[in-house]
Design a protein around this nucleic acid. Structure first.
Lengths: 314, 314
DNA sequence: TCCTTCAGTTAAGTTATACTTAAGCGAAAT
DNA sequence: ATTTCGCTTAAGTATAACTTAACTGAAGGA
């Protein structure tokens, strides 16, 4: 049996027709006339030896053969299109698409974006806030910032910053909170976005390393870290905040971190991009910039007592 | 940016050239002259705006853009080719490719194949013995016989037979084995291929439901069920055999199953094929035949005492 | 009922793509 | 020094892809 592919244009015509379930719409998509498309389908059916569409009065429907073929052509052309777009994007040195988690985007990237735009006026930065793991070969993403453990196989990976956590609140609220025990009398805000960390880095862990016995089970819970910090900004309560996300607010005095004790995490932020892409000019510029910003952000480490959360007893 | 695909023939030429890393070999594969292929690559590079190959003295190597594009085109054309072959195979009513586990192939299918060939002389049956889960959309498989639990989503699934197990041995050996306790004095053959079953259906489970205390830890272990039965056929020892696999040997008297107690399993054999494919003539013929064979195979159920293995204590 | 519209087909003719042949080129192999 | 190898280029050809225009058969509306 001759298993070589039929004319590719015929396959593409079939793919479009199967997606639209309409010859004329498919023809419009491909910028050809319905007549041409009709010929392509006919040619495909001759190569196959049987029809792929059943022609009805005012519509078409797939035959068994068509139903078998359609998912494969859809996959195939999707892969080709994705690869082509990604390759074309290589030479586009004017835009840079970065994906990061929603919290990091809101509390770290967004406040610093103006600086980057000033320093690189020729690069148009696009942010894609999502926790979804991106596939550089399929999605139109140049750079990903991810928080967690790694390793990142097959990717260029650069560690940006370790993360640590400490109680954070408005200066007003801080007047009433001088010792860890005082936290029992204020609202505790819970950031649930780090539940995947081991050991757990939550209020219970912090109180434990402080050696005080405070019930930490009450208070509102936030699935996104930035929302917890936003709540703290209103003076609602105290949040055990990730330093990277609270950094700007601390620097500008809207929040304070009065306690010496900080909980270290084993996770860290990493800069990820496809292998060798780190040399592309706009990616290099972004990496250099973000590394510089990240190293500056260590100013609040002074005077802290860093403790790692205890491993949970088995 | 114009993200529409370049001429597909150019993409295909690139794909072949990237796979072979040679223009002339790629041209040979596509049955065109090297000159034509050279033009296709050139055309692709014009559409892309940059070269995909770096021309060296007597060789070519991929540029960064080429390295980005190549995996995608390989995937894409592989998907198209697989879909096309599978669709072509639909109209081939002369062959039928069946995959089943090695044991079922050897001890169930193979001994019955002659019957099927007699009844369906126009169908050429191909067997592919493998435990790998087959993907009907990628592999050239029409029908799969699988042992386990299901469910089988998105597939046509027909339950063929429940499986049960009982001690099986040569008639000679059976003279020395009259009661379960006698099994302590013969070699126990262990079939490890069912370790995924819950509850476990091994010698320990069988002795437990028999209420006797025999050490079942000794004796040779086999990773494939048919090898354990082959060992029993030589008179080496006694195997706790799956009835479907031992059926032919029991029927023809080469093995006997003297004990009343049989261990039921919750798993069963299923016939699997793509949705709607069960109506294709040769698949229908095979399904009808195998269903008839499977229902005949219940002859050894008479006089058995069926017990399910106890759930393990938590 | 008749006319219109809609979706796809068919025929004839045109354009543009894909391909071949033949000659050329530079570097490596002999 | 000469040949060989792998790719390129130029010129010309075949054919695949496409368009325009006329056609079909059924559904929908007045």
């Amino acid at each position: 049996m001759n298993d070589r592919l039929p004319p590719l244009t015929a396959l593409r015509a079939f793919d479009a027709a199967a997606r639209h379930m309409s010859f004329s719409k498919a023809a419009a998509e491909l910028n050809i006339t319905p007549a041409a498309l009709s010929f392509q389908i006919k040619s495909l059916e001759e190569h196959l030896g049987q029809p792929v569409f059943r022609r009805l009065n005012r519509a078409v429907e797939l035959t068994e053969a068509g139903r078998t073929l359609a998912p494969g052509t859809a996959d195939g052309f999707a892969a080709l299109t994705a690869a082509w777009r990604n390759t074309r994007r290589l030479q586009d040195n004017s835009t840079l698409t970065v994906t990061a988690g929603p919290a990091f985007t809101a509390k770290w990237l967004a406040p610093r974006l103006y600086d980057f735009a000033q320093a690189n006026p020729d690069i148009e930065l696009r942010l894609s806030a999502s926790l979804r793991i991106m596939d550089f070969t399929r999605d139109e993403i140049d750079v990903a910032i991810r928080f967690g453990y790694g390793p990142d196989e097959g990717l260029f990976s650069q560690r940006l910053a370790d993360e640590w956590m400490t109680p954070v609140m408005t200066p007003d609220l801080a007047k009433r909170v001088k010792t860890p025990v005082d936290l029992a009398n204020v609202t505790l805000l819970h950031d649930d976005s780090l539940h995947f960390l081991k050991p757990a880095c939550d209020w219970a862990a912090w109180f434990k390393v402080e050696g005080v016995d405070v019930d930490s089970s009450h208070g509102p819970r936030f699935s996104q870290a930035d929302h917890a910090i936003d709540a703290a900004l209103t003076g609602t309560g105290v949040v055990l905040a990730r330093i990277s996300l609270a950094h700007k607010e601390l620097q500008e005095g809207r929040l304070v971190a009065p306690f010496e004790t900080a909980l270290t995490t084993k996770a860290h932020f990493r800069f990820l991009c496809p292998m060798r892409a780190e040399k592309r000019p706009q990616i290099k510029a972004f990496l250099d910039w973000i590394m510089a910003e990240a190293s500056q952000a260590s100013s609040f480490e002074q005077g802290r007592r860093f403790v790692s959360a205890a491993e949970p007893a088995e």
